[in-house]
Simulated scan of single mutants.
Amino acid sequence: MNPLTEPQIRASLVNATRSERQRMIVPGLAELRWDRLDYLGWRDRKQPLAAYAVAEVDGEPVGIILRAPGTSSRRAAMCAWCEDVGDGDDTSLYVARRAGAPGRKGNTIGTLICTDFRCSRNVRRRPTLAEAGADDDDARAVVVERRIAGLRERSRRFLDEVRSTA
């Protein structure tokens, strides 16, 4: 992911009001390893039920506000973005208000995402022998690249659904 500035992140939010953009607390951008991120996701420390995700779509940042879970389900679940399986504390249902008129009418869309937005780290973990099919660094690299591509595609698809006014 290309590094983003705070103004770029605020401007990228497709389902936010002006006041929501102003209230948003942006994480420390200087500390991020942008080259190891496929999207930027975080929970707002001042607003516990607010979360955000920003990804590049067609070379431009597209961001959304998500409603973070108040409590976890305490059940094992698979993240829809990175396809990693975790317990109830690791994966949560996040809900986003749709952009435009549908969102103003209260239409939302939800998905299961890693609670702490660690998808980029999950897809880069070393594949097991069973996943790679061979004890070979090249075979493992192929698995990691496939995971990264899948994460990028699935997160972008969700952002497109939030932006869709159909």
Rank of each mutant, 00 (worst) to 15 (best):
N2E: 11
N2D: 08
L4Y: 08
E6I: 03
P7R: 02
Q8N: 03
V14C: 06
N15R: 04
N15E: 10
A16S: 08
S19P: 01
Q22C: 08
M24Q: 11
G28H: 12
G28A: 14
G28Y: 14
A30M: 04
E31S: 14
R33H: 09
D35F: 12
R36F: 15
R36V: 04
L37S: 04
L37T: 01
Y39N: 02
L40W: 03
W42D: 04
R43M: 11
K46Y: 12
P48N: 14
P48V: 12
A50I: 08
Y52T: 07
V57N: 00
P61W: 01
P61R: 02
V62N: 00
V62P: 01
P69A: 15
T71D: 14
S72F: 13
S72H: 14
S73Q: 11
R75F: 15
A76H: 13
A77L: 13
A80T: 09
C82D: 05
D84P: 03
V85Y: 08
G88W: 05
D89W: 11
D89S: 14
T91M: 11
T91D: 08
S92I: 09
Y94C: 03
R98H: 08
A99C: 07
A99K: 07
A101G: 06
G103I: 05
R104V: 03
K105L: 15
G106D: 06
T111M: 10
I113Y: 03
I113K: 06
T115A: 14
D116I: 13
R118D: 15
S120W: 01
R125T: 15
R126V: 15
P127H: 04
T128M: 04
A130F: 13
A132F: 07
A132D: 05
D135P: 07
D138N: 08
A139N: 05
A139L: 06
A141G: 05
V142Q: 05
V143H: 10
V143N: 04
V143A: 06
V144D: 06
E145G: 10
E145P: 01
R147V: 03
I148N: 05
A149L: 04
R152Y: 02
R156Y: 01
F158M: 05
L159K: 02
E161R: 08
V162Y: 01
A166N: 11
